[in-house]
Design a protein around this nucleic acid. Structure first.
Lengths: 190, 190
DNA sequence: ATTCCTTTCTAACATCGTTAGGTTGAGACT
DNA sequence: AGTCTCAACCTAACGATGTTAGAAAGGAAT
């Protein structure tokens, strides 16, 4: 080591979230980001390969938070409602991140470690293949992300409709999807 | 009129779709677009206020195509499967447009005219309020769009998985959602 | 011919992501 | 102590972007 590093990937990522939350995705440039960190833009490239990789980090961070919040040994319904709610909450805390997460697929390194837990829960009370289980979970992810995107289009402009509107929409979308999962794969149904 | 207009909003929009299809959203700049039309970039601004408005036109065009394909006097299931399939087909024909459509809400001017038809179909065989019906339709829209986005992330790079993978995923997501709608609101259920 | 009005142009602005190459300064080694 | 090394930052510049102001072009109307 040498001149006590002012920067690292983690601190940069934190600044990205701050900037995203306060100014929105449109205000996120390598220069505005660097300014927040009392540094020049080029310095960021020592810690991060490029902007795309930085945004992928944002997406993966949100996803890994959601996956880390999963409770093992739970049933499929608990898993899916938990996932949906914690994802929605994460995107509610970081509204500017919704537009970033929505257009990016989660990295396999982030998703794959959670697969066994997901499959175990999905098979607890459901009759389906592994492939079907993962498809359903990914679809739920898409549904929640897309919903958040509709709510926080271009932060920080406030949503067009009141919060309650999106809350009920979310509840309806979620419970409808879960009802479909139960109807098609529920252990007590066909 | 004067020097026989080479440009109009419609021809520009066509060129946007062509460019989107062939080179992807990353290659769509006002300059590349103008070059395709044998014109300089600034000329576009006589016909379109800015790039954001142009992308909104793309989104609205896709949406209005989908809504125009709806068959009146149909049941809710026919409506929703028809919507889902024609939206997926439209985004399959214009893969680069998926990223554009996904991050934009459909303009009210495009959506509202279709509301009566949508509500009539949704009420044919379903017990729910108007608000619930619209929520479900919008959720389906989000689901299909998000799915297409996962498939065609950054066109024209080919998808990571084979076509069949996304086909079965799509079928599972759609039929699960529809099963949920039926389970929760089917006229013969509770 | 001259005027008028629509459409396109040239030229420029600020900002963007990114790279090449120079500077700094703390710890390691003699 | 002096010197070397190398991580971590800087300056400066590149080309590309969206956008605007204002000039030019060229039919249509007088």
């Amino acid at each position: 080591m040498s001149p006590a590093a002012r920067l690292d990937t983690e601190s940069i990522l934190r600044a990205v979230f701050d900037l995203l939350d306060q100014e929105g995705v449109a205000a996120l440039s390598m220069r505005t980001l660097a300014t927040r960190l009392d540094v020049k833009a080029a310095s960021l490239y020592y810690h991060v390969p490029n902007k795309a990789a930085l945004l992928q980090l944002v997406s993966d961070r949100v996803a890994s938070q959601v996956l880390a919040a999963l409770t093992p040994e739970s049933g499929w319904r608990e898993l899916m409602t938990g996932m949906a709610h914690s994802l929605r909450e994460a995107l509610g805390v970081h509204p500017g991140a919704a537009a970033v997460v929505a257009v990016r697929n989660v990295s396999p390194e982030v998703f794959e470690p959670a697969v066994p837990l997901v499959l175990a829960s999905m098979h607890a009370g459901l009759r389906l293949t592994d492939e079907e289980a993962l498809f359903l979970v990914q679809s739920l992810f898409i549904l929640v992300t897309g919903h958040a995107l509709a709510e926080f289009g271009e932060v920080p402009e406030p949503p067009a409709a009141p919060r309650a509107y999106y809350d009920t929409w979310f509840d309806i979308a979620l419970s409808t999807f879960l009802a479909g999962v139960h109807a098609r794969h529920g252990a007590d149904a066909g």
